[in-house]
Amino acid sequence: MANMSDNNIILRCQGLSKSFGALKAVNNVDLDFESGVVHAIIGPNGAGKTTFINLLSGELQPTEGQIYFKDHDLTNASPNKISQLGIGRSYQKTNIFPKFTCLQNCWIASQSRLKTSMKFFKSAHRDMEVMERAQRALELTHLAMKPEILAANMSYGEQRQLEIAMMLATDPELMLLDEPLAGMGSEEGAEIIELMRDLAKTHTLILIEHDMDAVFAIADQLSVMENGILLETGTVQQIRNSKTVQEAYLGEEETA
């Protein structure tokens, strides 16, 4: 078990690597995430950010290294176990159930917090606790108006909101958000940023995002990745002032 000397650390990666054949998508990353902090991971396309998130959520197994969440070793844990421990995630590429209604999508997410869903007799939609959690998630994401619409018939922006709503409906303590703003209009985007600000008061957020304005608006900590390597990590101000980072990545952004 890792020695989490700083009690405030909720998630710790040690020497984390993931190789696909000869390609090291994530290369020996040591990184701690503090509880209650919004920690954004930035970097160019192909830097290994999504692979990193997939390692944290259990969708990929690391080639080397360890991951610890509070008192649990997550290194080879399954995605369902990681979700049950209180880590939720959203996907960069919208990953909802198109043939379910908007509410059903959140419903199935919310229902996962029951001790078991091996229940055969009672109609699913009679469980008030599950229903309330699903509806709260819809309200938070401004989707409560039309719960009966088929997810396939929702607009792209609404589907992105639903993606986040499903994560919220599992009531996670730590949220992994993979480009939550991807493809959203500025108005919807602003709503999601507002929502993340609210969530940050009570939750820990790990965020991948390309929209630098959004990152600077909500993130407390920043990590920069390139070619699978963690270049630097620090507060927003530290990263802004870092020479390495400016040369490698931010420089282009700010001149642009």
């Binding site: 959520s57 969708e59 399954s78 995605p79 979700s83 990953n95 198109p98 379910f100 199935i108 996962s112």
Partner: peptide, 15 residues
């Protein structure tokens, strides 16, 4: 849900 997208159901926490 499994029929539609098993991977997603697993990531929501179902074995």
């Amino acid at each position: 849900g499994i029929c539609a997208n098993e991977q997603r159901v697993r990531s929501l926490g179902y074995a």
